[in-house]
Nucleic acid binder design. Sequence first.
DNA 1: TTGACTGCAAATCTTTTGCAATCTT
DNA 2: AAGATTGCAAAAGATTTGCAGTCAA
Lengths: 161, 161
Amino acid sequence: MGRQAERAASELDHFRTMLQTYMDRKGLRSTDQRRLIVETFFRASNHVSIEELLAQVREKDRRVGYATVYRTLKLLADCGVANERRFGDGLTRYELADDTTHHDHLICVECGDIVEFEEPRIEELQDKVARRYGFEVRSHKHELYGSCPRCLGKRRNGGGN
Amino acid sequence: MGRQAERAASELDHFRTMLQTYMDRKGLRSTDQRRLIVETFFRASNHVSIEELLAQVREKDRRVGYATVYRTLKLLADCGVANERRFGDGLTRYELADDTTHHDHLICVECGDIVEFEEPRIEELQDKVARRYGFEVRSHKHELYGSCPRCLGKRRNGGGN
DNA sequence: TTGACTGCAAATCTTTTGCAATCTT
DNA sequence: AAGATTGCAAAAGATTTGCAGTCAA
């Protein structure tokens, strides 16, 4: 079920307000599909792909189209509720744009599991590096690819390879 | 012309040997196109895209096909001579797999410039994080997105927006 | 001669877009 | 009623693949 399922309602309300404000300002409309997709996204595990989200959405309403999910997630990204992420498997994934926790990712190349981590000291060094090169950093991506403990364990016990 | 142009011949020879060994082992063949593409890649600026490389290759031989460049770069990646990298602009770029210098990237979101940086202390912290989560890290990606000094300067002097 | 390699075009795969019909406001 | 939204299908953009002809070993 992932971390997003555990988020406090108040936190989600903050995102709902952000979205609402943005839609009001732009004169956008609230439709059944949009509400369903957004709420499904809030309940989904973190780092959902469009495919995964569409599947979950269709459990509630089989008629929702691919493009609508794409457009709605773009909307969420535009208004700052979601972040697009690409982890090199050719798919775009989305996560809640939780600015309060700056996290990065550990990705298991065997089972595809994604774990988040935080390390403020890395962020500090990062800023120093940027300053050293005269860059003004807006965002960053820090991903560690390897094998998770579970897959390492399986390999040691189970198969010989 | 980028860093690759400045590399010592001996260093490139190392890569040529790696490739040769791999091809021998797999029974692969050395063709005009392959040699041309590989040598062009060695001379190209770092982080070339397929398109860019193909253009440079076609300056020497107009008949080389798209697919051959793709296949040859995949080959270079397979034998460990090149690394694939995706910086989020939808294109796959390739760089020499120089293990001796662990570098990461600063990417200007305005002009697309890519600068490499090294920061051993970040690498250390990274390893600690991985250990903390029981991961065995095989590779990583650390990218800082923002504005380069040149674009920052332009904005201050030139246009107001 | 064998079978790897090439160039082309067609196929994939993910994401985007045009459009007529349908909803929001 | 105006115009935003939807679902579909078609388009787009990057990469991969099938195939017949070509070439390396």
